[in-house]
C-alpha cells in the first residue's frame, strides 16, 4: 500500500508488511555511490532507484528491484553488496536478492523524492545566483 500515486518506492511509501517497512528503512541508509562524490549524498530511496520490494515470508527472502539511473552503471555491484549486507541483518530475513530492472523503463529525475528534488534544485539555483549568472533565455529577451 502506498500513500502516493507512484509505481516505485519513495520515503513516503507505506507498507502493511512490517518486514517491508524495515527493509525500506534499511535501504534509506544505502547511499548512491555517484552522489557520494558530491557534497550532498543521496540515498537510493530518495533518488527513486527502488522500484519494488518483495517479501516471501515462507522462505524469508527479500527481493529488491532497482531501476538504475543508467543501465551502464558500473556501481551496481557495490550497491548490491551494501543492500545485501544491511537488509540481511534483519532478524526475519534469511536471503536477499537484488534485481536490476531491465524492462526498458527509464530513470528520470521525476522519480526522486519531491523534497530531495526541490532541495537539489535550490542548491543549484543558489550556486547560479552566487555566481551572478543570468540564464541565456533571459539574456536573449
Amino acid at each position: 500500500m502506498s500513500t502516493e500515486a507512484t509505481d516505485h518506492v519513495l520515503p513516503t511509501t507505506e507498507f502493511q508488511s512490517e518486514v517491508k517497512t524495515e527493509v525500506k528503512a534499511r535501504l534509506e541508509a544505502v547511499l548512491d555511490p555517484c552522489s557520494c562524490m558530491s557534497d550532498n549524498p543521496v540515498n537510493i530511496v530518495d533518488l527513486g532507484l527502488v522500484d519494488d520490494i518483495e517479501w516471501d515470508d515462507s522462505s524469508g527472502t527479500v527481493t529488491v528491484h532497482l531501476l538504475l539511473t543508467s543501465q551502464r552503471c558500473t556501481y551496481f555491484l557495490d550497491i548490491d553488496d551494501e543492500i545485501c549486507e544491511r537488509v540481511g541483518e534483519l532478524p526475519d530475513v534469511s536471503d536477499v536478492e537484488v534485481h536490476q530492472v531491465t524492462s526498458g523503463e527509464i530513470w528520470t529525475a521525476d522519480r526522486m523524492a519531491e523534497d530531495e528534488r526541490r532541495a537539489r534544485r535550490e542548491r543549484f539555483e543558489r550556486r547560479i545566483e552566487e555566481a551572478g549568472i543570468t540564464p541565456y533565455a533571459d539574456r536573449s529577451e
Partner: peptide
C-alpha cells in the same frame, strides 16, 4: 538535458 542547456547557456 537539451532544455537545461538551452535555458542556461543557449
Amino acid at each position: 538535458s537539451l532544455g537545461e542547456m538551452l535555458y542556461w547557456a543557449g
